[in-house]
């Protein structure tokens, strides 16, 4: 009788040991995955900063001003060519 219990317990012990190995393996795998994602997040963050900077550089008022005047032949709005619509005026 006691031999049987020992056998069952031994079997359970082996199972537990194996599942521990398995769990550890998965944990490490997922950790590496997490690590990779975090690196990617940082990379994207940097890229975002870079793009923001590019946007600022391309959207410089001096550049817009120059392009509007030179390439698009635009002129600043003058007051006598503007009609203002105010809330009170019907």
């Amino acid at each position: 009788m006691s031999g049987r219990i020992t056998f069952v317990l031994l079997f359970a012990l082996v199972l537990c040991a194996l599942s521990l190995v398995n769990a550890q393996y998965h944990a490490r795998e997922q950790f590496i995955e997490l690590e990779r994602s975090q690196t990617e997040a940082r990379q994207l963050d940097i890229e975002w900063s870079q793009l923001q900077l590019d946007q600022s550089t391309l959207g410089l008022h001096s550049r817009i001003d120059a392009v509007a005047r030179r390439d698009l032949n635009m002129v600043p709005v003058t007051h006598d060519r503007t009609q203002y619509m105010t809330a009170e005026a019907k």
């Binding site: 940097i46 900063s49 870079q50 923001q52 900077l53 600022s56 959207g59």
Partner: peptide, 18 residues
């Protein structure tokens, strides 16, 4: 990373890149 400096409309005035 050092914080960005933006103007009141979110236009970047200073930004750190690696």
């Amino acid at each position: 990373t050092r914080g960005k400096i933006t103007d009141r409309n979110g236009q970047v005035l200073a930004s750190s890149l690696p």
